[in-house]
Design a binder for these strands. Sequence first.
DNA 1: TATGAATGAGTATTCATTCAT
DNA 2: AATGAATGAATACTCATTCAT
Lengths: 188, 188, 188, 188
Amino acid sequence: MARPKSEDKRSAILAAATRVIAAQGLGAPTAAIAKAAGVSNGSLFTYFETKHDLFDQLYLELKVDMASQALADLPAGSPPRAQVLHLWTRWLAWARACPEKRRALAHLCVSDAITPASRQIIAASFAQVLDLLEGIRAAGPMRGVPLPFVLSLMNALADATLDFALQDPDHADAHGREAFEAFWRMLS
Amino acid sequence: MARPKSEDKRSAILAAATRVIAAQGLGAPTAAIAKAAGVSNGSLFTYFETKHDLFDQLYLELKVDMASQALADLPAGSPPRAQVLHLWTRWLAWARACPEKRRALAHLCVSDAITPASRQIIAASFAQVLDLLEGIRAAGPMRGVPLPFVLSLMNALADATLDFALQDPDHADAHGREAFEAFWRMLS
Amino acid sequence: MARPKSEDKRSAILAAATRVIAAQGLGAPTAAIAKAAGVSNGSLFTYFETKHDLFDQLYLELKVDMASQALADLPAGSPPRAQVLHLWTRWLAWARACPEKRRALAHLCVSDAITPASRQIIAASFAQVLDLLEGIRAAGPMRGVPLPFVLSLMNALADATLDFALQDPDHADAHGREAFEAFWRMLS
Amino acid sequence: MARPKSEDKRSAILAAATRVIAAQGLGAPTAAIAKAAGVSNGSLFTYFETKHDLFDQLYLELKVDMASQALADLPAGSPPRAQVLHLWTRWLAWARACPEKRRALAHLCVSDAITPASRQIIAASFAQVLDLLEGIRAAGPMRGVPLPFVLSLMNALADATLDFALQDPDHADAHGREAFEAFWRMLS
DNA sequence: TATGAATGAGTATTCATTCAT
DNA sequence: AATGAATGAATACTCATTCAT
């Protein structure tokens, strides 16, 4: 095969898309993304069939990245509270470390480009979180509410926390801990 | 320039915009909105200088509408928990009664059309809520966290609840109550 | 109604399209046509929904124009030969008078933009020709062959004649007459 | 530069181009042709410098193919009418045997890719036909009209006949004979 | 003021052709 | 020579906004 498709270039496009979408939203021109990636207008389309396709794959990559960072080094043997705190802390750390990824993700979430297939893969990436929450929920006051609902409440709290943390970086850690305690009170 | 003649037409445009944005997102053509409002292409721009302006004013109107519905009949003399429950219930009821308003609002939230001026007016509309929460917070475990943060956590929980409630209307009330209890555990 | 759609502008676009297609073929950019019509890029699409639509309508207009010119002043009472000669002569005269229309038509004939509806309208425009040929055919050596076939042979001869006439204008009339005689020998 | 290695590949490309052009017209992407030929995108351009060049050579090949098929086994000693009938019949047979070649040719005819050089070579291929017609013409009613004109009239009739024959294959032979008789009436 | 035609910049995608491997 | 990735000019069509009526 001649010049194989370069994984580097694919990554460059995804990274550029993250930056550009974070800054300009989903309306960002593909040309702007290509330029930011140091790639020609047309090359973008040899790596991604469509703008929608690019968005879908970017969503997948960012979500998986987020999940893997949040779940890394999860102390499986520790008590649930410690595990959730670990998760919570890592999550916030990830978002603070790469705010553009989070911003891009926020835009992509409401895009209609996301494929059911991607959603499934992502759900799988978060299976561990579900397992963890399941044990806690079943033993606490939320034992009557569906697990996905609990997950989405957690998500909502974390997101709101992030918004605050990013605006007020000096107290980010404090806010993070307070929100975690609040969440824990809610859950157990 | 004085206010344009017909207040009806202005309202029609805003209502149409709500519907169209709910359905198509912020990318909806102004022409589509004008058509849905039964108004000509160009007339839209005699009522709103630009698309951004329309979005800004619509955001304002929807938020104010939401606030006024949620705060209506607030039992000022009742204990705080009853008041917050009232608020919570009304809020959910409003969203379930006019899901298009909520959907449109969700889109508008991430728009960059919203003016600081609008944000201020809205903040004022929610002053009562802040007052209410303030008393509760100061007396409970969240006494150390900034009030706006508490508000935004409440907001986040309510939003997540709504997403669930709208997808599963049969258990909407149950979810609503459970989420309220969770919130209350968090707060007090 | 505000500024009504101008019939002049529509005509200008069709005329420009005739010229541009004659020169560049069906691949001609819509922008080139708009420019040639002295109209903005976007205006073309307020008069014709689509490039295909423009082609379809242009085809219709040119064919009808051709038919009406060829059939004008047809001496209905004269003997058939005189009538066919009249037709033949007028046809050639039309094509020589506006060779761009003919060139454009030649391109459009092979386009897949032409609507069945247009083809029907055109067939109707040529009904007189069919009637005329029918009488002649039935009385001559071609009485056994389908009328549409006869028409298309006539068409083919006339077209080939035109190609010659346009390349060699000095003898155009002579060629036209010779071809007519040949056609007549064929038919009667 | 010497001829590129594989004559097979060149042929494959030409054959693929015939099929693809017949189906999609001259707008067909070179990539589609390459794929249909089982050859890479880039290889096409080692065999043909440009798309125009490919078209020119394909035109040449198809025309020569047509001529050679039509002229094969021409009964040189037979009376002119028999020879022309032979030609006529073979021609129609060729087109019916490989309608894609004919369709492609029809598209290529109106392309501006055809080189004067190609036209000359083709003219030479048809020299025999000219000779044959010349004798007949000079002795008949068309003695006054230029030979190339006669040829092109013949061409036009044959083409129109083919269109009919391809649409109505059951009567193709009958139409073919009728058209020949008509042509012969015209010519002699 | 209301209308809707006019405008032209903007956008995703295609494709002939080149070039690194 | 063969491959297919890289390139970037080209193109139909859209849409916010303006303006003639």
